[in-house]
Amino acid sequence: MLRQGLQVICTVLLGALVTVPLLQVVMRDLFGAPLIGAEELTRFLLICTVFLAYPLVVAGRENIVMAELREALPDRLRRALHRLIGLAALAGCGLMAWVALGSIIDNPGNATPTLKIPFWLFLGAACAGFGGAALVHLRQALSRRPTPTETGAAADSHSVSL
């Protein structure tokens, strides 16, 4: 449910990301009236799309990783390493989300130069993205289900594993 909702939001952002430069071409070349701040808006959309879609990457286990050595380890060691990586990822994402939140609180008035897009939107996307990723990592850590690489299903997912 949550995942579907996030998917819809990100898709809308991606759609806008393609549409805005297109609109700029039409307005500038056909009507001679370039949109002021279109590039700024596009960059804003890119930042939000990348961060908000990040929990989807983690949930799909599509993070880019060189897992060859890890997967060649003895069973117990490998599982311990999996746990360690999961916890480190959880801590890292949690910290990033917390820091992004702190930056929002520190500079609430910060905005982009032309369109005055408030920075808390960018940082909010980073906060939500890393926060969401932390939750997904937490769920993956708690779940008893083996990871795809462990079951050899990696080839079916998007993740790169050796």
Binding site: V65, L69, L81, G92, V99, G102, S103, D106, L123, A126
Partner: peptide, 30 residues
């Protein structure tokens, strides 16, 4: 990286450690 941390964390975690040790503002991360 070699022990199988996803690339993004292999980069991010030492960077976080550096910023903590050097006492740089955490806001730099975000």
């Amino acid at each position: 990286f070699v022990t199988g941390f996803p690339v993004v964390y292999a980069i991010l975690l030492p960077a976080i450690g550096y910023i903590a040790i050097e006492g740089l503002p955490l806001g730099l991360l975000a």
